[in-house]
Design a protein around this nucleic acid. Structure first.
Lengths: 149, 149
DNA sequence: CGAGATACTCATATGCATATGAGAAACTCG
DNA sequence: CGAGTTTCTCATATGCATATGAGTATCTCG
């Protein structure tokens, strides 16, 4: 699941990064195109700008522009700005946090599953989506840390 | 992201399915062990029971028991009971639903990413977690429908 | 059959994500 | 430098996930 706010941000990024977009897009344009409420989208865009992924400019001819090439912006980088993992310290089995030196049986496997879920976001860029391309790494490769058994 | 409610359900299932669990577990036992509020966990367990994954029994010696072998219960089957995908009909580009016969450029790629994120849940079972095992399919194989480009 | 134990149900409270409204700050351009 | 345009900020409203409390239904066992 991805929060509605993160979804707004992603759609906004896709709009701004589209090759046919040549000038800065205003917040209300982006809001209209994405279906998000105007002021809410403004807040979302502001957060993305603070993170350095887009640039904001006020006044006439103002609006939002990419600050980083679309090929370098992964979906995870956008989504993680809003959907922070709360990381329940209680382990999947038992009633306390897992002792790192002696984790519960399910610990590593659960970590692997959670980690694997992040891969598609970490290995797909805004540019990939705009080109209708799926990076094979997004669905085929798992980092070393995921190899459990 | 996985909702707190779905997380409760998962932890409850793991407890009930543990090999050292020989009798029916009461709702309050499960609540205490998982850190969930008592009545809330009762409601969650009730929903899981209605879905047919566990069996409930009232009165003394009552409680909850697996209704299906742990090896046949995928994480997705549990989580999907609570975390229903709202499926924004508006496509990632443009302001309306994607025309199925002429989808937007990003359509298939986004579908692939979303689908890839479901794999770890669909291909991992309660039994897998209890045995600390990660099914290779959870992170390595993608179904045909995901091959886009 | 009665008492106690447990699941079940519903009405309501709370907190956070989402949304709204209005005003202040900063920019462009004539 | 003034007027208009836009981002930025904050105070507050709303809705839904989460949580709580109390009562009802159904079971076991003596």
């Amino acid at each position: 699941m991805i929060s509605l706010t993160a979804d707004y941000a992603l759609r906004a990024m896709l709009l701004i990064a589209r090759p046919e977009t040549v000038r800065a897009l205003r917040a209300d344009e982006i809001a209209d195109a994405t279906g998000a409420p105007r002021n809410y989208m403004a807040k979302v865009l502001n957060a993305v700008a603070k993170a350095g992924l887009i640039t904001s400019a006020r006044g006439p001819t103002g609006g939002f522009t990419l600050a980083v090439p679309a090929r370098q912006i992964t979906l995870g980088r956008v989504i993680d700005l809003f959907d922070t993992v709360p990381l329940n310290s209680r382990c999947m089995l038992g009633n306390g946090p897992c002792d790192p030196s002696c984790p519960c049986r399910a610990h590593a496997a659960w970590q692997a599953v959670v980690g694997a879920r992040r891969l598609p976001f970490l290995n797909t860029t805004i540019a990939d989506l705009l080109e209708g391309r799926v990076a094979p790494h997004a669905i085929h490769n798992a980092p070393e840390s995921l190899n459990v058994a």
